[in-house]
Write a protein that binds this DNA or RNA. Sequence first.
DNA 1: TTGTAGGCGTTATCAG
DNA 2: CTGATAACGCCTACAA
Lengths: 365, 365
Amino acid sequence: MSTQGSSEKKPPNHAGQPRQSSLAGLREVAVAAHVSTATVSRAINTPHLVSPKLRERIHQAIDQLGWVPDGTARALATKRSYTIGAVFPTLTHGDFARATTAIQQELQARGYTLLLACSDYDLEQEFQQIKKFIERGVDGLILVGENHHPDLDKLLARRSVPIINTFVYSPQTHGTCIGPDNRKLFFDMTRYLIEMGHVVFAIVAQSVQNNDRAEARLQGIQDALAEEGIAVRPQHFAIGQWSISEGRHLFRQVMATQPRPTAVICGNPYLAVGAYLESISMGLEVPQDVSIVGYDDIEVMNHLPVSLTTVRVQSEQVGRNAARYLMARLEDEAIDIPFQCDTEIVIRASSGPPSRKNNPASLSL
Amino acid sequence: MSTQGSSEKKPPNHAGQPRQSSLAGLREVAVAAHVSTATVSRAINTPHLVSPKLRERIHQAIDQLGWVPDGTARALATKRSYTIGAVFPTLTHGDFARATTAIQQELQARGYTLLLACSDYDLEQEFQQIKKFIERGVDGLILVGENHHPDLDKLLARRSVPIINTFVYSPQTHGTCIGPDNRKLFFDMTRYLIEMGHVVFAIVAQSVQNNDRAEARLQGIQDALAEEGIAVRPQHFAIGQWSISEGRHLFRQVMATQPRPTAVICGNPYLAVGAYLESISMGLEVPQDVSIVGYDDIEVMNHLPVSLTTVRVQSEQVGRNAARYLMARLEDEAIDIPFQCDTEIVIRASSGPPSRKNNPASLSL
DNA sequence: TTGTAGGCGTTATCAG
DNA sequence: CTGATAACGCCTACAA
């Protein structure tokens, strides 16, 4: 019956040419190579189970017909799509762009493909995108942060799709996430500034809305300060967008308050660059008048007239390891990757001890 | 990992509930709603063909079972994956990142998903990635540039996958590409500098290896200069990487030559920023001593002590329109989008007329 | 408006 | 090692 069906389905070759009429399939290859479809399938997937002779013949037929296997059919039959979905908050921030590139490279090296979506820091949207990915049959999922839609677990449970949270790490959730310890990272940075003698700190940062990473970093600052009995005054707390112009604006704002901060910690590299550029406009000397530090290292920070102190996160490493971890789980391989990724405080010219005249510490203490 | 894996893999059914045993399918939903599978299928894909009563019952069954349709099966049956593949040279350049974001947004709005790969400016790799995408069953393809692997046409022919080349436009290939007219764009920029009185031009640009866009832009410069009988001297031609530090290096290099250029055209924003920052180190005044202009607008250019003249390309527009064009073709809709995208020369502080003393024109002419 | 019955292109389970 | 043949989960003529 199958023969009947196929003979009726195919539009007749008017031309009489034995060329491919519309789309060559596994079946056509099998016919051309005088073997069964099963053998063709094996020749591609498990070549060692096919005699060299047939293998040769089959491959000849394949690239003679220009056959390209149908991944959707294969996925249906194997329940594996060799596809990984990644949902990032945005792509226009350097760290995520770098991570994405690394993920894609890593996946490609092992025959996987990347599905990508941007949630724009919206949990609901992230959830919908994940759902879409599940529908598309992704084998694994790469997300950012640990804070997701409440229904996510339920959705993932029945499909048992492995998942990894990136750009976060905490000992409590070891094994489910890959990234820097955001809290510790700014804790250390703050300690560095404290040890340098700073007492009045300002924070210029992006919104922590649906951003547990930024939130953790803020917490790190506050924890470090609290140990010294210091708190950030409300007027030294500037939260806004993620841009250079915002950095300028917020910097000017906090520098106009009393007491004037001697150290400004910026939540991302653009804010830091903006803060520094505004300091020039304001005629301030960095770091004599004020120290400026940032988060994440973008190239321009190291090339400005006063290079900017910051903390470098190995975003590529995060992406690469996330991809590797997922693939290892999927292939049931053992893998030993560091879940906590490297970070490094890069001390440059924009940070130094507060000058005596600007530091009201001696007065207020 | 085995302990983790096994414990997560099999969530035992503690409760004796007849809940979903492993994976609910269309069939299960049909049973639960007391209808046929066909009706369920219609209820999701063509709701207007199903009576409200049944529709209601079916949807109830669906989210009671938490059913998520299997996209791979659907794709196999319909020959449509609602998936678009994009291959970019890189993601770490602002323009491509912005375009990618726009593409993803646009696709998502209409239920499509984005497959992404980076070719790293390698034609062979691009070809392999495209092939992979075809295997995965993409409905359409977004590429960059017009220069692709020679076998690409052959590959696409049999599958008839619509394709759109982005970040390029020329009247000759109208309808197959969306982007700026790269040649014209730097032609105009060069004219602007010529009219300002510049005669000695230097070029600081990235490699044109597999980059027809950059090549066209270079051509634009040369064409404009040729009209005035001017050519770029070999010693004023600096080609290198794509980075700020490279920009510094190449700028210093060309400025050390004789005759000293009064205008330096940079092939991308990072080179321009680098060139400007190096000019500071060299103690040069911009634009009195030398004019610096770039390509593409990144935020920092507008915030440096001397803001940088550049040409702005609407990368989001490119991405958005590419996505729309593809979807329109796939849905057999008419669509009227501009294939040539907006560009704008943004004149800022870094460009101006050459000062008399630096301009050897009066001598050489 | 709803149900029935292949079929989409591969893989996988069996025998030979 | 190779060849039939039944899935895989959904869609869609065709019938009712």
